[in-house]
Amino acid sequence: MLIENPLMEARQVTLYYGASEALRDVTLQAAPHQITALIGPSGCGKSTMLRCFNRMNDLIPHVRLSGQILYRTHDLYHPDIDPVEVRRKIGMVFQKPNPFPKSIYENVAWGARLNGYRGNMDELVERCLRQAALWDEVQDQLRKSALALSGGQQQRLCIARTIATEPEVILMDEPCSALDPIATLRIEDLMRELKERYTIIIVTHNMQQAARVSDYTAMMMLTDDRAAGTIIEFGETQRLFTTPSDRRTEDYITGRFG
């Protein structure tokens, strides 16, 4: 299926790590102010796909990509594009919470300062922590080390830190996989609020999570020769989960897979 006016789009993306193929001919669209979920079994290239959207794969040596990643009208892999600028507009939250070993305040302020924020920093820190539903818990301990927080709090801090750089898109790579169910629900609530302001693409192992929070879902799997990952079905989440058109999608979401 095709979405009209997607904010981000992968067009026939094929990616190699050295000699081994990781993605083959992936086409995917992300609608603005919607949550797009990437689901599928382990090792099918979901995270690799996600990392194409902010050129995070650049940090790995010997990565080759063909096809196009479009953000609005820009081809992100065009030689004239600066990956640093790309990442300022397209933020990322990782699987394992990775706050800086700095204070809570500094975790939020650091990225904003890098991006040339000149306004009132205290205000920004408070606003971002409120948006990330963390303010009430940490307002009295902003100078404490971020590492003293619990895993769920750390992950919300990472979201606050990402919001502080005013991105337009937030990529989330299994943001709840290291968290307990209660922390997971808090992050999911947060995602629903955040999509009012941002466009979210999320990788998740958790099918219920994809069904609960996302508007669109892409089902990824290894190709028939088991060499690389590709998208076998993409559509509105509700439709994909109720009437999947691909047999493999149905097997996977009903737990019959493998």
Binding site: N54, M56, L59, V84, E85, R87, R88, G91, M92, F94, N98, P99, F100, W110, G111, L114, N115, C158, R161, T162, T165
Partner: peptide
Amino acid sequence: EAAYALGA
């Protein structure tokens, strides 16, 4: 990665 993802 955290730093790069913030545009550092």
